[in-house]
Write a protein that binds this DNA or RNA. Structure first.
Lengths: 253, 253
DNA sequence: CGTTACTTTGAGGCTTATCAACGACCGTGG
DNA sequence: CCACGGTCGTTGATAAGCCTCAAAGTAACG
């Protein structure tokens, strides 16, 4: 089963395509569903900058950078991270972004990125100048509503991540992480039971507020129970019902 | 030193004021700073519903309710909570909202509240019908930008809360919580070193992903170190520099 | 003034972080 | 092509932090 990182890889190879045509984009269903209409896609095409390719470790933006454009992952994957502000040595992985996901929305409030974004693998992104998006949104109610949804959805997502860290211990955290990945991949038309996790164990651990070793051990235990199959970054969910049972069983209190 | 819960209490006593005048509101500086201009405040007054008073434990809205209006805390305090979706027994406190804070923004994406909001004490709120706010924002760029900021700020806030849970253990979590309260109160023109925490220990614990007893013990230890003074819900920050040192010292590797 | 809920304190045990070592994989350079 | 170093992942042992249970003390409320 093909993994997300290999999604339409050949189509993405074309470097710096001068004028992306959103109406032909394979992501249009997940990326801008309500906005892309007969004329909507054409409008958006005028907004979207040429695609740009990033290599693993490349920064899309760094914490402190001025907000100029938003990003939409077209292929590959990206992590957003924040430092505590106190010590710079340690960073928290806030979220992993898959194709269709928007990045940089948290910079709107201060017009300056509070987080950093780093490509996890070879990644292609669309770029949307925020000033022009804001301008165009003011004359296109549909687009405005979509921007609201994006921003609001970011709050919902962050809240559920916080709930995961607040209510659950290690096993359900790791389990919920995989089930969440599964759901997000399914929504993109990819296989929901077998996939490749492009991030390192350390990045998963940071995202879940755990130590690298704990993530490794938890995956091993889930494997022993016959719930998953683990081969490096490749994961197969063997017993989804069993995994969901972990969530109900291992909550705190 | 006056605490936030007693802020202008007499002025708030007036029940169900029929037509709130934002230009006279004592919160105008913190609540809608950029929007309230000569004409802005008048416009907003036409948006804002009569104030409503809540008693401790009253719900402003419940998870699942349809989004109809946003809320702005005028006096008192509110907690927003979410359940894991798996088990209803346990709830996670996402945030405590002080006067000037907006609530309900996370409902925009699904037009339905994903969280619940409960008053912690006697609380007065302004209500803003979302449909009319959206409508008016489309014709008033300043207001639109403000709504963007509110939403984006919600993401930033949620991310920093997640970073706190992900990177720090108990002592810095409790410390950061108090320092955050201090900053937020200072921004409202209240005393930043002595204040009343209207929420229970259990609610603080839930917010910080800890057990009630751990919060209690941590506060006791900070008291022993001479960093704070604790008398029930009343807190005095005795050594802010010392508290900030806790943050740098007790981070997880 | 009694009842209830909340808070504090103590003791014990479990989860998980930490330290350490080993093996696997990958890219590099010989 | 193989040897090499480095990063990453796994596994084990240990200990620390925090959760849990339990009980007493305190504040809040009718």
């Amino acid at each position: 089963m093909k993994a997300v990182s290999f999604l339409d890889e050949q189509a993405q190879e074309i470097p710096d395509r001068p004028s992306p045509e959103c109406q032909n984009c394979h992501l249009s269903a997940t990326c801008l569903p309500e906005v892309v209409g007969q004329s909507g896609a054409v409008l958006l095409s005028s907004l979207v900058h040429p695609n740009r390719t990033y290599r693993p470790g490349d920064h899309l933006y760094r914490s402190g950078d001025r907000l100029q454009k938003l990003f939409i992952v077209k292929s590959g994957s990206v992590k957003t991270t924040s430092t505590s502000g106190i010590s710079v040595i340690n960073e928290q992985v806030l979220r992993f972004h898959l194709p269709g996901d928007a990045l940089g929305l948290d910079a709107v409030a201060g017009m300056c990125h509070p987080t950093s974004a780093v490509a996890l693998e070879k990644t292609v992104c669309c770029e949307v100048p925020f000033a022009r998006l804001e301008q165009m949104a003011s004359t296109h109610p549909q687009l405005q509503g979509y921007v609201y949804s994006l921003l609001s959805g970011g709050v919902v997502q962050a809240n559920s991540a916080m709930t995961l860290l607040g209510l659950f211990n290690a096993p359900p955290r790791v389990t919920a992480f995989m089930l969440d990945m599964s759901r997000r991949l399914e929504r993109r038309g990819l296989c929901k039971t077998a996939f490749r996790m492009s991030m390192s164990r350390a990045e998963i651990a940071s995202h879940l507020g755990l130590a690298t070793e704990t993530v490794s051990r938890t995956l091993a235990r889930l494997h022993d129970y016959g719930l998953i199959s683990v081969d490096g970054k490749n994961i197969v969910l063997l017993d989804v019902a069993g995994l969901e049972a972990i969530l109900t069983a291992h909550g705190r209190e």
